[in-house]
Amino acid sequence: MALIETRGLSKIYTLGKNRQVVALNNVTIGIEEGEIFGILGPNGSGKTTCLKLLLGIIFPTEGEIEIMGENQYSVTAKKNIGFLPENPYYYDYLTGPEILMFYGKLFDIPVSVISSRTEELLHLVGLYDARNLALKHYSKGMLERIGLAASLINDPKILILDEPTTGLDPIGCKETRDLLIKLNQAGKTILLSSHFLSEVERVCTRIAIFHRGYLLSSGTLDGLMKDYQAENLEDLFVKTIEKFDTQEKQEVA
C-alpha cells in the first residue's frame, strides 16, 4: 500500500461569481515508502495546490487523499509528516531555537529531546551560528534553511517539501540535495516539488509532471525518457508539455 495516495483529486478555486480556476484536475498518484518523489511543472501548474491539499490546509473540490491509511485531516497522520511550505515564513520575533521549540511541543516531544534535536538540526542546516538571531533578521535562504530544520523536528517518516531549494545559494542547494539523499537513506519518504530539473534528476527516484492542473505523466526517470524518446529530463519535460498542448489544440480544432 502506498504511503500517500490521492484518488481523482481536483481543486477548483472560485474567484468571485463566475470566475473559476481549475488548479488540479483529477489527479491520482501514489507515493510508496522509501521514495523520493518529485513533482515537476511550470509555474501555476498546481504543485503547491496539490501539496496544500495533502496537508489539509485547503480542501479538495473532488477526490480523496489517504496518508498512512488515514485522511489528510488526521492528527495521527500529521505526527509523521514534516512540511516545508513554499517561501516559508515563521514568527519573526522568535529565534531559530524558539521556533523549533514551539513546533516540537506541538508534536508532544519532550523538551529535552527538542533541545538536543535543535542543536543537531541547526548544525545540519548551517544556522548554528545564527541561533540567537530573531527570524526577522534572516535572509530568504536562511528562512528556507530554518524551514527545513523545522520540518525535521519530529523526525518524520514523510517529508513534504515545496521547492526546498528556492532562495538557496549553489552551495546551499548542493547541501540540501545531499541532505535529502541522506535522509532518504535513513528511511524517510520524501515528496518534493521543484522547478530545478537538474535537482530532480539527481535526487528523485520517481517523478510526476504537472501541467495546467493535469498530471501528464509519472514514473521513473528512465522509464519516462524511454516512453517519450527523450535524451534527458529537460527534453522529457518539454516533450511532455508540448505533446499535451498540441493534443489540446487538435481537440479544439
Binding site: I57, V75, I81, N87, Y90, G147
Partner: peptide
Amino acid sequence: KRTIYPLLSKPIT
C-alpha cells in the same frame, strides 16, 4: 503572514 501553513500542518486540530 503565512505562519498558518506550518502551524496547520502540525498535529493540531
